[in-house]
Design a protein around this nucleic acid. Structure first.
Length: 908
RNA sequence: GGGCAAUUAGCUCAGCUGGUUCAGAGCGUCUGCCUUACAAGCAGAAUGUCAGCGGUUCGAAUCCGUUAUUGCCCACCA
């Protein structure tokens, strides 16, 4: 074995091994199932550390449950991410070929996107595999593949048939660049400096005007009313009168509306543009106003804008303002900060736009999904995120599911030229609110002449990406087929995801599962923290601050990456991860971070412990651990009881504690705690203490116990660090089952002994006291020193341990030994340690130290006394606490007494 | 505007049910060590008004209120 753990060949070796043995496939049919579906990463780009975190957690859960003997399945896959992916490809098309999608046409563009998808799906898959994700790769899915497409068809058809999907003209967020509707949640708002223009809205009879203010003057052209507050004395007289829209001279009414108008804001009068503003739209509905669309799909003004037709954006605005000024209608211009909506993907301005769209009626669906969480059937961890879910669903807003894109599931709807007269169970017909006849086809794509006597035209729109994502847990398992996977693995056990898609995705999966499967898709939702970069921004593909996990894996190894990801997974909602660039020998530049050294160093520590112990290992994989220990019978090596040595009992107590606590941590999604428990057990208890005690001379008995401990550690650590644990297992216990499949250890509670642990700590305190003296006088380890301990405890059995660990030339203990001259002292529980240092001892150093210690203890005594003389404390606090305080007081008094004595001696 | 969170050592963060097992870890810093597993290591050490203010309590980093700063989510005023 090399002195340093080298992850490179080892990782690929085990990936191959697990793969060959098909260990990632379900292997325990009939047992209780444990299944997860991956949150499918978008094929817009490669994965970053946020995904690494998310997938590490899933893999930890999968590997842990696999070791528990459950029938385990983790389904991998990717998401087509409609708008995002199309935007990325279109952007590249423009950059590299100076072409738009219209130059290519639908078919060709979609072909290009598929190519992109293939490339990124491969990259993503490779990233996940490198991470060690134990997904069943034979079941990998893509949201646009035929299996998922079928599910989408069925889900759509069923909802349509039930009347839960409808088509209507609605005001939507219109992306003028991509020429598609986008969802509310695909938009972000940006504060920009704009202006607030006040102008005269002339009365049709020429008798005057109403002053109206706006931030978007070009929308004047689409005004169909001006609203004032019904109680507003200034404007009451105008209500019902008619105004003339400047430039186009359309007549519009003055209406009274208390909802829209705030008397105290601006001029107290509002122009109403129902086709281009959400609030105005609502107002338009209330007053049955015409909805006048003044925009083309690309955002330019259309023929309704008269002389301004063809102008776009800022130009249109400037032209309208100029026109108003020329006509003497402009009253004033003020600076004004406002929020404008921009599309998530290419950062283009979003216009509210009236268009025909498809919607899902959310009312009843949302209600049922809320109940699943309210009743506790679906449980969030951390629990606070349930609020997030409930608040969003509570709004019950209808879901706009159509997108005017080319990349996605095309809506299975055909417009018929006349009223269809067919009777087929796989085709459902209905009439829309504006009288069109529609056909929805369950299985087959209809062509123009599929139905006799009708001309059919397919709806060009595709579905919102989240429509297929919402089906993910059951579509991946083959719904609507009655598959074995659904039978064996549905509902899934837990969903591990990020908090920003609780509403977009989690809520909709619950809805669709309830609708299609009649049950919830998962009973637990674990929300993992968000990874932020060094400056506190969320790591994401669109920010461009993503760090490729492969960089980290290359430099530190996948195990290190996983260990740190697990450590970072606390109940907090974010985790900051500063990275820096580093140039490799081959000239490539990768991201590195000293954070990952924790994992790497830990792996190395374990590696070296194993390397050291290798010659002494008892291969307990075959039950050759014959040290006279009892066997629990459950598993060949478990239940080892060790000898009567204090340190042996101590390490067994610690070992069984860590087994118990790691399991509890895992069961409660306390990943950071899990990592920390195993880390400190290995490093502090097993290596720094137990191994150091034993390493001078390793007896047969010691080797058995060390083997047992190490063997168990490999099991406990495997879910976090699968590669190194598997490798070490192969080296140390070549005859045992591989760690991936081997049974998870169970704690023997009878070996957990607090009294033993306390005794051990007290004795170890002697070692630490002597080491501290060494440190104080910079005595090299090679230089042996003597020590005398005043204590009533018989330390005979611990003599060699104390001698070895403290580098002693002689060691005496007893109750009535004389104090050695020129000695440094240290107070321990029930005694005192003396280290004679003739010729080395520095009086000033000791005096200063003792004074400081006395001072510290005395101030502690003061606060303890204060507490204990407080009647309310004595009355109110539990007896155990009070007793504890008394003991502390005794200890502190002992320290003061002994230190004072030592001080006195120094002065004589 | 509504909601969720954060503020603890120079940095990144733990600290679940209030009680010096609670003031911690890793990194960094200082001192001494290539001690026969590990310098990616060993031994020792230093470092904090637990953001401010108020309250509850015998007792608060921990519970409540409030202020400040920061981040995220949701909704948005012409």
């Amino acid at each position: 074995m090399e002195t340093r753990y080298n992850h490179k060949e080892i990782e690929s070796k085990w990936l191959e091994n697990w793969n060959e043995q098909e260990n990632f496939k379900p292997s325990n049919m009939g047992a209780e199932h444990f299944s997860i579906v991956i949150p499918p990463p978008n094929v817009t780009g490669a994965l970053h550390l946020g995904h690494a975190l998310n997938n590490t957690i899933q893999d930890i859960l999968i590997r842990y449950n696999r070791k528990l003997g459950k029938n385990t399945l983790w389904i991998p896959g990717t998401d087509h991410a409609g708008i995002a992916t199309q935007a990325v490809v279109e952007k590249r098309l423009l950059q590299e070929e100076k072409k738009t999608r219209h130059d290519l046409g639908r078919e060709e563009l979609v072909k290009r996107i598929w190519k992109w998808k293939d490339e990124y799906e491969a990259r993503i898959t490779n990233q996940l595999k490198s991470l060690g994700a134990s997904c069943d790769w034979s079941k990998q899915r893509f949201t646009l593949d035929p299996i998922c497409a079928k599910a989408v068809r069925y889900a759509f058809f069923n909802l349509f048939k039930k009347g839960l999907i409808y088509r209507g003209k609605r005001l939507v967020n219109w992306d003028t660049h991509l020429r598609t509707a986008v969802a509310d949640d695909e938009i972000y708002h940006e504060t920009v400096k704009g202006h607030f223009w006040t102008f005269k809205y002339p009365l049709a009879d020429g008798s005057g005007y109403i002053p109206v203010a706006t931030t978007r003057p070009e929308t004047i052209l689409g005004d169909t009313a001006v609203a004032v507050h019904p109680e507003d004395e200034r404007y009451k007289k105008f209500i019902g009168k008619t105004l003339l829209v400047p430039f186009v001279n359309r007549e519009i009414p003055v209406i009274a509306d208390a909802v829209l108008v705030d008397m105290d804001f601006g001029t107290g009068s509002v122009k109403v543009t129902p086709a281009h503003d959400p609030n105005d739209y609502e107002t338009g509905l209330r007053h049955k106003l015409p909805m006048l669309n003044i925009l083309n799909e690309d955002g330019s003004l259309n023929e309704n804008a008269g002389e301004f037709k063809g102008l776009k954006g800022e130009k249109a605005r400037a032209a309208v303002v100029e026109g108003l000024e020329k006509q003497g209608l402009l009253l004033k211009v003020e600076d004004h900060e406002m929020q404008i909506g921009k599309s998530d993907r290419p950062k283009t301005v979003i216009e509210p736009y009236l268009s025909d769209q498809w919607f899902v009626k959310m009312d009843a669906l949302a209600e049922r999904a809320m109940q699943a969480v309210e009743s506790g059937e679906v449980k969030f961890t951390p629990a606070r995120y349930a609020k997030n879910y409930l608040n969003w669903l509570g709004e019950k807003r209808d879901w706009c599911i159509s997108r005017q894109l080319w990349w996605g599931h095309q809506i299975p709807i055909w417009y018929a030229s006349a009223r269809p007269n067919i009777n087929r169970s796989d085709i459902h017909c209905c009439q829309t609110e504006n009288g069109d006849w529609l056909l929805c086809s369950l299985e087959e794509d209809l062509d123009e002449n599929s139905i006799e006597g009708l001309k059919l035209v397919r709806d060009p729109d595709v579905l919102d990406t989240w429509f297929s994502s919402a089906l993910w847990p059951h579509s991946t398992m083959g719904w609507p087929g009655e598959t074995d996977d659904l039978k064996n693995f549905y509902p899934t056990s837990v969903l591990v995801t990020a908090r920003d898609i609780i509403s977009l995705w989690v809520a909709r999966m619950v809805i669709f599962s309830q609708e299609n499967m009649g049950e919830i898709p998962f009973s637990n939702v674990y929300i993992n923290p968000t990874i932020l970069d060094g400056s506190g921004r969320r790591m994401s593909k669109s920010h461009g601050n993503g760090v490729d996990p492969l960089d980290i894996i290359e430099k530190y190894g996948a195990d290190s990456l996983r260990f740190v990801m697990c450590s970072v997974c606390t109940e907090n909602q974010e985790a900051r991860l500063p990275v820096k660039k580093e140039k490799l020998e081959d000239g490539r530049e990768i991201n590195v971070s000293e954070k990952f050294e924790i994992g790497r160093n830990f792996g190395n520590k374990l590696w070296n412990a194993a390397r050291f112990l290798k010659p002494y290992i008892t291969d307990i994989g075959h039950g050759t651990l014959d040290m006279g220990q009892e066997k629990s019978g459950k598993s060949e090596n478990r239940g080892y009881r060790g000898s009567d040595n204090l340190e042996d009992k101590w390490i067994l107590s610690k070992l069984n504690t860590v087994v118990k606590e790691t399991q509890a941590a895992l069961e409660n999604y306390r990943f950071s705690e899990y990592a920390s428990l195993i880390y400190h057990f290995v490093w502090d208890d097993l290596c720094s203490r137990y191994l150091e005690i034993k390493k001078g001379e390793i007896s047969k008995e010691s080797s058995a116990l060390l083997s047992h401990s190490l063997y168990t550690v490999l099991d406990l650590l495997h879910p976090i660090m699968p590669f190194i644990t598997e490798e070490l297992n192969a080296i140390l216990f070549p005859n045992s089952e591989r760690v991936i499949l081997r049974e998870w250890p169970s704690a023997d509670e009878s070996l957990i002994n607090a009294e033993i642990e306390k005794q051990f700590e007290e004795i170890f305190a002697i070692v630490e006291a002597i080491r501290s003296v060494r440190g104080r006088y910079s005595i090299a380890p090679a230089q042996k020193i003597a020590a005398v301990v005043h204590t009533a405890v018989n330390l005979e059995s611990c003599k060699s341990m104390i001698t070895d660990l403290s580098g002693l030339s002689s060691f005496e203990f007893g109750e009535n030994l004389p104090k050695p001259a020129f000695s440094a002292n240290a107070v321990i529980s029930g005694g005192e340690v003396f280290v004679p240092l003739e010729g080395i001892l520095n009086k000033e150093t000791e005096i200063a130290r003792l004074k400081k210690e006395i001072e510290k203890a005395e101030s502690f005594i003061v606060s303890l006394n204060k507490k204990l003389s407080n009647e309310n404390f004595v009355k109110g606090a539990p007896a155990a606490i009070i007793e504890g305080e008394h003991q502390k007081l005794a200890t502190q008094r002992d320290i003061v007494e002994k230190c004072k004595a030592a001080l006195e001696e120094l002065f004589t």
